[in-house]
């Protein structure tokens, strides 16, 4: 017991959760490539296993058997540490995600800040990885990544404060609980849009993958990476996507809660499994949305990305925060 927070059997979940997420990443990258193939009128990976399902396994074997090269002109320690930092900090985020009413590792009252803290630590992996490669493309890529992630972190944090004002807590379980009547997507639509954009930029996915834009920077900060280290960097990116989608669902789409007419599942399989099912379904929906965005929207220029952040999204976020605070105070105490 530490300050009365629940420390119980849920710690057993840590290993299966981490392993399950990494497995999910393996299939996710296959599924993403397959979807992109369809969307771009080509086939995508379809050779290994049924419809190419085992592509992830084949890639894993390839990663493990590839030459694990460390550039002799770079910084060895940072080069090895960077993929670990990226992947580990993103896996740490999973610790606070409640997948169902009591299916979580810990429920701390700073869960939301924990997410922001861990995603800001992931910057170090990208930064040190590019720096340690001692290569112009990698350095430029990681400078871009650092500026982009620090910028978008600012209003990623601010955009979810509207949710905190409504729920009155940083605890994710309580935030979901506060959405019993109405999902926060309705009162916080602006906050949702900004969080989505910031989440895209934070996990540097297309269309915001300027740090690794291959038409101008080779592969950006991971140009020098190969083998399992490269796999870890990619893994970190996919875990970031999963975590961001989980947070979108938890903060704006009611987590495991569903409207009454979908309540038929709960008596059949029990509260926990029904919650897990609905939560998973919503998260999958947003993961697909991320993939569709990747296929549909071209990259902006880097200066466009930064000025969008500072000149449009930041003022919008502040206005959203101000209006939300005013309305909630008005509803609670009157004028």
């Amino acid at each position: 017991m530490l300050f009365g927070w629940e420390v119980n059997w849920s710690y057993v979940l840590i290993l299966p959760l981490a392993a399950g997420t990494l497995l999910a990443v393996m299939f996710l990258q296959w599924w993403e490539r397959r979807l992109l193939g369809w969307l771009q009128d080509r086939r995508g990976p379809n050779r290994v296993g049924w419809f190419g399902v085992l592509q992830g396994v084949a890639d894993g074997i390839k990663f493990l058997t590839k030459d694990d090269w460390v550039p002799p002109f770079g910084d060895r320690v940072f080069f090895v540490a960077a993929p670990v930092i990226v992947c580990a900090s993103m896996l740490f985020v999973l610790a606070v995600i409640p997948f169902a009413p009591s299916f979580h590792i810990v429920d701390v009252n700073i869960a939301l800040l924990w997410f922001l803290a861990m995603s800001s630590l992931a910057v170090y992996g990208v930064l040190l990885g590019g720096f340690a490669s001692n290569n112009k493309y990698a350095l430029l890529g990681s400078l871009r990544a650092a500026a982009q992630m620090v910028t978008y972190e600012v209003f990623m944090g601010l955009s979810i404060m509207g949710v905190v004002i409504h729920a009155g807590s940083f605890s994710l379980v309580e935030i979901v609980g506060a959405q019993e009547q109405l999902w926060f997507i309705v009162p916080q639509f602006l906050g949702f849009v900004i969080f989505l954009i910031a989440g895209l930029a934070e996990s540097h996915r297309l269309p915001f993958d300027l740090p690794e834009a291959e038409h101008e920077l080779a592969a950006g900060f991971h140009t020098e990476y190969s083998g399992m280290k490269f796999a870890f960097l990619m893994c970190g990116e996919y875990v970031a996507v999963i975590a961001t989608c989980c947070f979108i669902v938890l903060l704006f789409f009611g987590g495991w809660l569903v409207p009454d007419f979908l309540g038929f599942l709960e008596p059949l399989v029990g509260e926990q499994f029904a919650g897990l099912f609905w939560f998973g379904l919503k998260v999958l929906f947003f993961i697909h949305f991320f993939v569709l965005l990747r296929a549909a929207i071209p990259r902006p220029r880097y200066d466009q990305l930064m000025s969008l952040g500072w000149k449009i999204l930041l003022p919008l976020t502040l206005v959203n925060l101000l209006v939300t605070g005013f309305l909630v105070a008005w509803a609670r105490w009157g004028l």
């Binding site: 922001l116 803290a117 800001s120 630590l121 040190l128 650092a146 500026a147 620090v150 972190e153």
Partner: peptide, 15 residues
Amino acid sequence: EVVVYAGAIVVLFLF
């Protein structure tokens, strides 16, 4: 402490 100091300020130093 993590969000502000480790996550933003020292990142700028390293930058």
